[in-house]
Amino acid sequence: MAATDAPGAPASGSDGDPTDDRSFADRLRATGARRIALYAALVALVAFYLSPLESGLMTAFKTQDAFFRTTPFAPPPPGGFTVEPWFEAFDRLSTGLINSALLAVPATVLSALLGSLAAYGLTNVDWRGQIAVLLLFVAGVFIPYQAVLVPLTRFWTIVDLPSLLSAFPPLAAKAGIIELIVTHVAYGIPITTVLFRAFYSTLDDEMLEAARLDGASTFRIYRRIVLPLSGPIFAVTLIYQFTQIWNDLLFALVLISDPNDQVVTLALNTLKGSMVQQYNLQMAGAFVAALPTLLVYVLFGEQFAEGVAGES
Protein backbone atom coordinates (compact mmCIF):
# COMPACT_ATOMS: atom_id res chain seq x y z
CA MET A 1 0.00 0.00 0.00
CA ALA A 2 2.79 2.35 0.87
CA ALA A 3 4.14 1.88 -2.63
CA THR A 4 1.12 3.66 -4.16
CA ASP A 5 1.85 6.87 -2.23
CA ALA A 6 3.60 9.37 -4.41
CA PRO A 7 6.98 10.26 -3.02
CA GLY A 8 6.90 13.64 -1.33
CA ALA A 9 3.18 13.52 -0.67
CA PRO A 10 2.19 15.49 2.42
CA ALA A 11 2.73 13.52 5.54
CA SER A 12 -0.78 14.21 6.75
CA GLY A 13 -1.90 11.30 4.62
CA SER A 14 -5.52 12.41 4.35
CA ASP A 15 -7.02 11.78 0.97
CA GLY A 16 -6.80 15.19 -0.65
CA ASP A 17 -10.03 16.66 0.73
CA PRO A 18 -10.20 20.29 -0.52
CA THR A 19 -11.85 21.53 2.69
CA ASP A 20 -8.76 20.39 4.42
CA ASP A 21 -6.69 23.02 2.64
CA ARG A 22 -9.06 25.80 3.46
CA SER A 23 -9.23 25.00 7.12
CA PHE A 24 -5.47 24.84 7.06
CA ALA A 25 -5.25 28.39 5.72
CA ASP A 26 -7.79 29.52 8.29
CA ARG A 27 -5.80 27.87 10.93
CA LEU A 28 -2.69 29.68 9.73
CA ARG A 29 -4.42 33.05 10.01
CA ALA A 30 -5.79 32.15 13.41
CA THR A 31 -2.27 31.15 14.35
CA GLY A 32 -1.05 34.68 13.59
CA ALA A 33 -3.57 36.22 15.97
CA ARG A 34 -2.79 33.55 18.48
CA ARG A 35 0.92 34.24 18.35
CA ILE A 36 0.27 37.88 19.19
CA ALA A 37 -1.90 36.87 22.15
CA LEU A 38 0.80 34.44 23.21
CA TYR A 39 3.54 37.08 23.25
CA ALA A 40 1.22 39.54 24.99
CA ALA A 41 0.67 36.99 27.73
CA LEU A 42 4.37 36.32 28.02
CA VAL A 43 5.16 40.02 28.31
CA ALA A 44 2.42 40.50 30.89
CA LEU A 45 4.01 37.71 32.89
CA VAL A 46 7.37 39.43 32.65
CA ALA A 47 5.72 42.53 34.12
CA PHE A 48 4.21 40.44 36.90
CA TYR A 49 7.45 38.72 37.82
CA LEU A 50 9.59 41.82 37.57
CA SER A 51 7.27 44.43 39.08
CA PRO A 52 8.46 43.95 42.69
CA LEU A 53 12.07 44.27 41.53
CA GLU A 54 11.37 47.17 39.24
CA SER A 55 9.45 49.21 41.77
CA GLY A 56 12.03 48.29 44.39
CA LEU A 57 14.82 49.50 42.16
CA MET A 58 13.04 52.76 41.35
CA THR A 59 12.26 53.37 45.03
CA ALA A 60 15.86 52.79 45.98
CA PHE A 61 16.88 55.78 43.85
CA LYS A 62 14.22 58.13 45.21
CA THR A 63 14.48 60.51 48.08
CA GLN A 64 12.27 59.95 51.09
CA ASP A 65 10.06 62.77 49.95
CA ALA A 66 9.88 61.58 46.33
CA PHE A 67 8.73 58.02 46.93
CA PHE A 68 5.74 59.20 48.90
CA ARG A 69 4.75 61.56 46.09
CA THR A 70 5.22 59.27 43.07
CA THR A 71 3.89 55.93 41.99
CA PRO A 72 6.28 53.19 43.04
CA PHE A 73 7.12 51.92 39.53
CA ALA A 74 7.78 55.37 38.07
CA PRO A 75 11.39 56.52 37.76
CA PRO A 76 12.58 59.17 40.22
CA PRO A 77 11.10 62.59 39.50
CA PRO A 78 13.37 65.58 38.81
CA GLY A 79 15.10 66.52 42.01
CA GLY A 80 13.97 63.32 43.65
CA PHE A 81 16.94 61.24 42.54
CA THR A 82 19.50 60.07 45.07
CA VAL A 83 22.10 57.35 45.48
CA GLU A 84 22.40 58.01 49.17
CA PRO A 85 20.32 54.96 50.22
CA TRP A 86 22.75 52.70 48.36
CA PHE A 87 25.77 53.99 50.21
CA GLU A 88 24.02 53.78 53.54
CA ALA A 89 22.69 50.29 52.83
CA PHE A 90 26.10 49.10 51.74
CA ASP A 91 27.64 50.62 54.80
CA ARG A 92 25.20 48.92 57.13
CA LEU A 93 25.43 45.57 55.36
CA SER A 94 29.15 45.39 54.67
CA THR A 95 29.99 43.24 57.71
CA GLY A 96 27.10 40.96 56.78
CA LEU A 97 28.31 40.68 53.21
CA ILE A 98 31.79 39.67 54.32
CA ASN A 99 30.45 37.16 56.83
CA SER A 100 28.05 35.70 54.27
CA ALA A 101 30.93 35.24 51.84
CA LEU A 102 33.03 33.61 54.58
CA LEU A 103 30.11 31.30 55.23
CA ALA A 104 28.76 30.57 51.77
CA VAL A 105 31.99 29.86 49.88
CA PRO A 106 33.47 27.15 52.12
CA ALA A 107 30.08 25.65 52.98
CA THR A 108 29.17 25.43 49.30
CA VAL A 109 32.44 23.83 48.27
CA LEU A 110 32.46 21.36 51.14
CA SER A 111 28.87 20.23 50.73
CA ALA A 112 29.36 19.77 46.98
CA LEU A 113 32.54 17.77 47.49
CA LEU A 114 31.02 15.54 50.15
CA GLY A 115 27.92 15.08 48.02
CA SER A 116 30.06 14.04 45.10
CA LEU A 117 31.94 11.49 47.21
CA ALA A 118 28.77 10.09 48.72
CA ALA A 119 27.03 9.84 45.36
CA TYR A 120 30.01 8.00 43.88
CA GLY A 121 30.14 5.54 46.78
CA LEU A 122 26.40 5.00 46.59
CA THR A 123 26.06 4.83 42.81
CA ASN A 124 29.13 3.69 40.96
CA VAL A 125 30.55 1.31 43.50
CA ASP A 126 28.26 -1.66 43.45
CA TRP A 127 27.24 -3.18 46.75
CA ARG A 128 24.15 -4.49 48.42
CA GLY A 129 22.13 -2.19 50.61
CA GLN A 130 23.26 1.04 48.99
CA ILE A 131 19.66 1.90 48.17
CA ALA A 132 18.74 1.84 51.87
CA VAL A 133 21.53 4.29 52.71
CA LEU A 134 20.60 6.37 49.73
CA LEU A 135 17.00 6.54 50.88
CA LEU A 136 18.14 8.22 54.10
CA PHE A 137 20.03 10.80 52.07
CA VAL A 138 17.08 11.51 49.79
CA ALA A 139 14.66 11.81 52.70
CA GLY A 140 17.08 14.31 54.24
CA VAL A 141 16.31 16.70 51.38
CA PHE A 142 12.76 17.11 52.63
CA ILE A 143 13.31 17.47 56.38
CA PRO A 144 11.70 20.65 57.78
CA TYR A 145 14.52 22.38 59.59
CA GLN A 146 12.22 23.32 62.47
CA ALA A 147 12.37 19.66 63.48
CA VAL A 148 16.08 19.99 64.31
CA LEU A 149 16.40 23.57 65.54
CA VAL A 150 16.20 22.99 69.27
CA PRO A 151 18.70 20.09 69.31
CA LEU A 152 20.90 22.05 66.94
CA THR A 153 21.23 25.00 69.34
CA ARG A 154 21.67 22.54 72.20
CA PHE A 155 24.40 20.74 70.24
CA TRP A 156 26.33 23.93 69.59
CA THR A 157 25.96 24.91 73.23
CA ILE A 158 27.45 21.62 74.35
CA VAL A 159 30.15 21.65 71.67
CA ASP A 160 31.78 24.84 72.80
CA LEU A 161 33.50 25.82 69.58
CA PRO A 162 35.10 29.07 70.76
CA SER A 163 37.03 27.28 73.50
CA LEU A 164 37.83 24.32 71.24
CA LEU A 165 39.31 26.76 68.76
CA SER A 166 41.04 28.91 71.34
CA ALA A 167 44.40 27.70 70.04
CA PHE A 168 43.65 29.43 66.74
CA PRO A 169 42.47 32.94 67.65
CA PRO A 170 41.45 33.96 64.12
CA LEU A 171 39.16 30.93 63.89
CA ALA A 172 37.87 31.28 67.44
CA ALA A 173 36.84 34.83 66.62
CA LYS A 174 34.62 33.48 63.86
CA ALA A 175 33.26 30.51 65.81
CA GLY A 176 29.68 31.44 64.97
CA ILE A 177 30.44 31.39 61.26
CA ILE A 178 32.21 28.04 61.59
CA GLU A 179 29.21 26.57 63.39
CA LEU A 180 27.05 27.82 60.57
CA ILE A 181 29.40 26.34 57.97
CA VAL A 182 29.28 22.88 59.57
CA THR A 183 25.51 23.09 59.90
CA HIS A 184 24.96 24.14 56.29
CA VAL A 185 27.35 21.46 55.04
CA ALA A 186 25.51 18.75 56.98
CA TYR A 187 22.08 19.84 55.80
CA GLY A 188 23.33 20.47 52.26
CA ILE A 189 24.75 16.99 51.75
CA PRO A 190 21.37 15.33 51.01
CA ILE A 191 20.55 17.62 48.08
CA THR A 192 24.08 17.65 46.69
CA THR A 193 24.17 13.85 46.87
CA VAL A 194 20.90 13.63 45.00
CA LEU A 195 22.14 16.02 42.32
CA PHE A 196 25.42 14.15 41.86
CA ARG A 197 23.76 10.77 41.90
CA ALA A 198 21.44 11.72 39.05
CA PHE A 199 24.53 12.58 37.03
CA TYR A 200 26.67 9.64 38.08
CA SER A 201 24.02 7.09 37.25
CA THR A 202 24.29 8.21 33.62
CA LEU A 203 28.01 7.44 33.45
CA ASP A 204 28.87 4.48 31.22
CA ASP A 205 29.29 1.40 33.44
CA GLU A 206 31.56 -0.18 30.86
CA MET A 207 33.87 2.80 31.08
CA LEU A 208 34.23 2.38 34.84
CA GLU A 209 34.74 -1.35 34.39
CA ALA A 210 37.40 -0.62 31.81
CA ALA A 211 39.16 1.55 34.37
CA ARG A 212 38.99 -1.27 36.91
CA LEU A 213 40.49 -3.67 34.40
CA ASP A 214 43.14 -1.06 33.69
CA GLY A 215 44.17 -1.52 37.30
CA ALA A 216 42.73 1.63 38.84
CA SER A 217 41.51 1.39 42.44
CA THR A 218 38.12 2.69 43.50
CA PHE A 219 39.73 5.90 44.68
CA ARG A 220 41.84 6.29 41.53
CA ILE A 221 38.77 5.79 39.36
CA TYR A 222 37.08 8.61 41.26
CA ARG A 223 40.12 10.81 41.09
CA ARG A 224 41.04 10.23 37.46
CA ILE A 225 37.79 9.38 35.70
CA VAL A 226 34.70 10.42 37.66
CA LEU A 227 35.89 13.69 39.14
CA PRO A 228 37.22 15.13 35.87
CA LEU A 229 33.91 14.24 34.22
CA SER A 230 31.91 15.94 36.99
CA GLY A 231 32.58 19.52 35.86
CA PRO A 232 29.06 20.32 34.66
CA ILE A 233 27.34 18.83 37.71
CA PHE A 234 29.77 20.57 40.03
CA ALA A 235 28.77 23.84 38.40
CA VAL A 236 25.09 23.07 38.97
CA THR A 237 25.60 22.01 42.56
CA LEU A 238 27.90 24.87 43.51
CA ILE A 239 25.59 27.48 42.06
CA TYR A 240 22.50 26.01 43.63
CA GLN A 241 24.08 25.53 47.03
CA PHE A 242 25.64 28.98 47.00
CA THR A 243 22.26 30.64 46.52
CA GLN A 244 20.65 28.42 49.15
CA ILE A 245 23.27 29.15 51.78
CA TRP A 246 23.60 32.83 50.98
CA ASN A 247 19.83 33.27 51.16
CA ASP A 248 19.20 31.35 54.37
CA LEU A 249 17.93 33.19 57.40
CA LEU A 250 16.69 30.52 59.79
CA PHE A 251 19.95 28.81 60.77
CA ALA A 252 21.69 32.15 61.19
CA LEU A 253 18.84 33.40 63.32
CA VAL A 254 19.18 30.60 65.87
CA LEU A 255 22.95 30.06 65.75
CA ILE A 256 24.42 33.55 65.47
CA SER A 257 24.41 35.64 68.61
CA ASP A 258 27.53 37.76 68.19
CA PRO A 259 26.73 40.87 66.08
CA ASN A 260 30.21 40.54 64.53
CA ASP A 261 29.12 37.22 63.04
CA GLN A 262 25.92 38.56 61.48
CA VAL A 263 25.36 37.28 57.95
CA VAL A 264 23.76 39.53 55.39
CA THR A 265 20.23 38.12 55.67
CA LEU A 266 20.28 38.82 59.40
CA ALA A 267 21.68 42.30 58.86
CA LEU A 268 19.05 43.03 56.23
CA ASN A 269 16.27 41.90 58.54
CA THR A 270 17.63 44.18 61.24
CA LEU A 271 17.82 47.02 58.74
CA LYS A 272 14.18 46.51 57.79
CA GLY A 273 13.12 46.48 61.43
CA SER A 274 14.98 49.64 62.35
CA MET A 275 14.13 51.72 59.25
CA VAL A 276 10.42 51.12 59.09
CA GLN A 277 9.42 54.09 56.95
CA GLN A 278 12.63 54.40 54.91
CA TYR A 279 11.59 52.28 51.99
CA ASN A 280 14.33 53.62 49.73
CA LEU A 281 16.95 52.39 52.17
CA GLN A 282 15.18 49.07 52.59
CA MET A 283 15.02 48.50 48.84
CA ALA A 284 18.63 49.47 48.30
CA GLY A 285 19.56 47.10 51.12
CA ALA A 286 17.55 44.28 49.55
CA PHE A 287 19.39 44.75 46.27
CA VAL A 288 22.79 44.96 47.91
CA ALA A 289 22.12 41.75 49.82
CA ALA A 290 20.74 40.00 46.75
CA LEU A 291 23.48 41.20 44.41
CA PRO A 292 25.77 38.14 44.66
CA THR A 293 22.96 35.66 44.04
CA LEU A 294 21.46 37.84 41.31
CA LEU A 295 24.84 37.98 39.64
CA VAL A 296 25.29 34.23 39.89
CA TYR A 297 21.78 33.72 38.58
CA VAL A 298 22.19 36.00 35.60
CA LEU A 299 25.52 34.42 34.69
CA PHE A 300 24.60 30.79 35.36
CA GLY A 301 20.82 30.67 35.03
CA GLU A 302 20.91 27.34 33.23
CA GLN A 303 22.82 25.63 36.00
CA PHE A 304 20.61 27.19 38.64
CA ALA A 305 17.49 25.92 36.85
CA GLU A 306 19.01 22.46 36.66
CA GLY A 307 19.76 22.50 40.37
CA VAL A 308 16.26 23.68 41.20
CA ALA A 309 14.75 20.97 39.01
CA GLY A 310 17.00 18.35 40.55
CA GLU A 311 15.40 18.87 43.92
CA SER A 312 12.38 16.90 42.83
Partner: peptide, 23 residues
Protein backbone atom coordinates in the same frame (compact mmCIF):
# COMPACT_ATOMS: atom_id res chain seq x y z
CA UNK B 1 11.53 34.65 29.32
CA UNK B 2 12.52 31.61 31.31
CA UNK B 3 15.27 33.51 33.07
CA UNK B 4 12.84 36.24 34.12
CA UNK B 5 10.19 33.83 35.38
CA UNK B 6 12.64 31.84 37.47
CA UNK B 7 14.43 34.92 38.80
CA UNK B 8 12.42 35.25 42.06
CA UNK B 9 13.53 31.72 42.99
CA UNK B 10 17.13 32.91 43.21
CA UNK B 11 16.31 35.58 45.79
CA UNK B 12 16.41 35.27 49.53
CA UNK B 13 13.06 35.33 51.33
CA UNK B 14 14.41 38.22 53.31
CA UNK B 15 14.80 40.15 50.08
CA UNK B 16 11.45 39.16 48.62
CA UNK B 17 9.66 39.87 51.89
CA UNK B 18 11.05 43.40 51.79
CA UNK B 19 9.89 43.82 48.20
CA UNK B 20 6.43 42.53 48.99
CA UNK B 21 5.99 44.59 52.11
CA UNK B 22 6.51 47.53 49.79
CA UNK B 23 4.21 46.06 47.14
Amino acid sequence: FRTVYLLPMSLSFVVTAIFWSWM
